[in-house]
Amino acid sequence: MSVIAGRIRAIPSWQVTLGFALLALGFLIAAQLASEGPRIRYTSQERTPLVATALDLQAQQESLKDQILAIRADIGSLETTGEGGAAVTVDLNKQLEQARIAAGLVAMTGPGVVIRLSDSTVAVPTEANERDYIVSGTDVLAVVEELWLAGAEGIAVNGERVTAATAIVDIGGSVLVNSAYLAPPYDVSAIGPSDMFDRLTRSQGFVDFIRARSETFGIGVGYAVQGAVDLPAYAGAVNLRHGYVDASPLPLASASPAAGTDAP
């Protein structure tokens, strides 16, 4: 035993360093080769400025959403200070806060699951369609719908809250949620009951999805059941530009048509 230890001690330190460095090098080369995986690559001179423009627009979008959330917070704060003691205002503010929560305009936390969809790492056969091996908007939409059916009460995809107005679309392999460009992998986070994951995995629709996408094309489907799943607030437009709100049967009926809407 002491002979082996002695031999190990006799190895020059640079050889140990070189050994570890070569190990890391091998890992990085393998990772780089893997990342060349199924995502399709195009090469043309027009692409570079278009990619830069898309990323710049996406960065602008993040900044605009931050501004919206900040102004909404300002308005909420001002509304609670106005005529602070008046019972009617206090009651209305409570109703407004509940309406914002119900609409997805408030960040939430609660028990739930996160389903991660990632591109296939399977080598694409020569005659196959490469698009089948990457996560599409249809895949994300299918998982969102299955989670609703399993009892989810709130969902977000990579930080984009899913609301009544949310579209999940696919433009040539890029997934857009609320018209925000999202990069893979896609984390579909849902707050829901403790048996939501069991319900999801028992659903025929979800079983079919796994068969069609994971088993056939190797699309990665991971999951984590969590005690606290965080959902961000929806930061898009909440306006009715072509419609107006019908009169409410509640005391709210006395309100005039909402600001920003077309009067009948």
């Binding site: 209305l92 609409a103 997805g104 909440v238 709210l252 309100a255 909402a258």
Partner: peptide, 14 residues
Amino acid sequence: VQIRSDLSRIRGWS
């Protein structure tokens, strides 16, 4: 008045 308007808009949208 402003809160009612806001409330109505959000409820309609949601």
